[in-house]
């Protein structure tokens, strides 16, 4: 990675332009460590909550009448928690929060593209599912989960664990 243009030699000599400084200002040791500790704990707590929700979804699925809406809400909650986690990692661990606004914007703004990217792809996937279900009845019958149309035929088994 080293190039013959080595920036490092000259950074110290940048005193003529005091605003050009490549050093972070959070050198206050105690405050920094406290911030890192806080973030670590926060990330851990969020992860634990996520796991709890994951297990809750599992329990709901095992139950007699899975509540689709509740599962969906749980899943939405997990997504939001994940975004919160991502925010803390980027902002604190990657120090983006300490950069100046210009920098933050050049990173955050392009990420907005993901919104339409995700919506369009997922909507399209969903639309193909609908097409198949409508015009390929065999596909629908052979892949639709049992509780939608097989229920009358057999009781839903309780244990879903895989066998080794």
């Amino acid at each position: 990675m080293s190039t013959h243009f080595d920036p490092t030699k000259h950074i110290s000599s940048s005193a003529a332009y005091p605003e050009v400084s490549f050093h972070h200002h959070d050198t206050d040791d105690a405050a920094f460590k406290k911030k890192v500790r806080k973030t670590t704990i926060l990330l851990s707590v969020i992860t634990i909550i996520e796991l709890a929700i994951g297990l809750a979804i599992y329990t709901i699925h095992k139950g007699e009448n899975p509540n689709a809406l509740l599962v969906l809400m749980f899943k939405g909650a997990v997504c939001i928690l994940t975004l919160a986690k991502a925010y803390y990692i980027v902002s604190v661990f990657m120090h983006l929060g300490d950069e100046i606004r210009n920098m933050i914007m050049t990173i955050v703004v392009p990420l907005m593209l993901f919104i339409w990217f995700i919506i369009a792809f997922v909507a399209d996937g969903n639309s193909y599912k609908n097409l198949r279900n409508k015009y390929d009845k065999h596909f629908q019958e052979s892949t639709m989960p049992a509780d939608h149309h097989k229920k009358a035929e057999e009781p839903k088994p309780a244990d879903a664990g895989g066998k080794q």
Binding site: F5, P7, H10, S13, S14, V20
Partner: peptide
């Protein structure tokens, strides 16, 4: 350092 270069033309010499 090209960074620094554009910042301080005088560093050109250092560059060399």
């Amino acid at each position: 350092m090209s960074e620094a270069l554009s910042v301080h033309p005088e560093i050109v010499t250092t560059h060399d």
